[in-house]
């Protein structure tokens, strides 16, 4: 064989090897989506892989919306979502023939925070928060005593979630009644750690961010009890979030499962593992698990292959988990 020929043969073999290896990744569960849900899914994936050698799980972070884009293209088996699926996404799924099962898997509670040196704020109502955060407050509500006259004549320093985050969407919806409707003159960051730093160093600060960041930094921050629908001020805690009294600033977060993917044993096994081990792992990564009954109901949804969403394509705030689970599911957007 001439040298040239040998070289050609080697090249062919390498290419053949490539295609032979293309079968790789058969027992692979592909997940993408929200960064809020990510820590829980990561924990479940880690445990799942050590319990089921040979099955592989990969998780990406491209935000709830970005995750759904991959989901309706059929590129992922599961989508992490910090809000329910929206009308446009439902329509895309329908167009692509993707059927999804909506599974609430934990609670995320937004926590309103002040500096520990702040002694005058004992609780806040949603109206107080609206006075502070509504778009009309921009450049006008600049002092604490403009919110409530009994509060001191001190500047008000605001810290909030970055405008691309699900946290921002949820907070603005719960407080002003319209997602993304907020004043713009505040320190915004996608990274909640920046907000923790800000509030912990500024005695006039008021900020909001995810519950987990508060739990990890309790010594540097003071959580504000929020007056709920029963007119009772409630501090965010595992108990108050779980029993639904910390409202409206707590919300369920979801995974969406492609129904067709459930035919693959690794995906079905992973989803069942998620619902079974989820509560303990959720607690471990500092989120609040759903009440036990909710996981059971979700398991039933998987077993029966019930597709659709309980939200009809619109986000809602202050919805109790029991109420959510009782609602009929539909793939048709609600008007």
């Amino acid at each position: 064989m001439t040298r040239k020929k040998m070289r050609q043969n080697a090249a062919t073999l390498i290419f053949l090897g490539w295609f032979a290896g293309a079968a790789f990744g058969q027992a692979l569960v592909r997940i993408d989506g929200s960064s809020t849900v990510y820590p829980i899914t990561e924990a479940v994936a880690e445990e799942f892989m050590s319990a089921n050698p040979g099955m592989q799980v990969v998780v990406g972070i491209s935000g709830t919306g970005g995750g759904f884009k991959k989901f309706y293209r059929g590129e992922t088996d599961l989508s992490n979502a910090s809000r329910p699926i929206q009308v446009a996404e439902m329509e895309e799924c329908k167009k692509a023939g993707i059927e999804y099962i909506e599974l609430p898997i934990a609670f995320d509670a937004l926590t309103v925070m002040v500096n520990p040196a702040n002694t005058f704020v004992e609780s806040m109502t949603i109206e107080d928060l609206r006075t502070i955060w509504s778009p009309e407050a921009q450049g006008k509500i600049l002092k604490w005593n403009q919110v409530r006259s009994e509060w001191p004549d001190q500047p008000l320093a605001l810290y909030g979630a970055g405008t691309d985050s699900g946290t921002f969407d949820y907070f603005t919806e719960a407080v002003t009644g319209k997602a993304k409707s907020s004043r713009g003159d505040f320190t915004a960051s996608e990274d909640d750690n920046v907000l923790v730093q800000g509030v912990s160093k500024d005695k006039n600060a008021l900020g909001y961010f995810g519950f987990a960041y508060y739990i990890e930094n309790q010594d540097k921050l003071k959580a504000v009890p929020i007056v709920n629908h029963e007119n009772k001020p409630v501090l965010p805690s595992e108990a108050s979030v779980m029993d639904g009294s910390y409202t409206p600033l707590s919300r369920p977060i979801f995974i969406y499962v492609n129904r067709k993917s459930l035919d693959r044993p690794e995906v079905r096994k992973f989803v069942e593992f998620y619902l079974k081990e989820g509560p303990a792992l959720t607690r471990e990564v500092r989120y609040v698990p759903l009440p036990a009954g909710a996981y059971k109901a979700a398991m039933e949804r998987v077993a029966k292959g019930q597709i659709g969403t309980a939200y009809g394509g619109h986000s809602e705030t202050g919805l109790h988990i029991d109420e959510l689970l009782k609602r009929p599911l539909s793939t048709e957007p609600r008007k």
């Binding site: 073999l13 880690e46 990969v58 972070i61 991959k70």
Partner: peptide, 28 residues
């Protein structure tokens, strides 16, 4: 679409059987 959580490695570029070289890692 780079991932954030991935707990396995791409397949090895060297294989024990002929052709001893594999490019399947490029697909990983």
């Amino acid at each position: 679409g780079a991932l954030t959580y991935i707990a396995f490695l791409p397949p090895s570029p060297v294989t024990p059987s002929p052709p001893f070289v594999s490019l399947s890692w490029l697909d990983s």
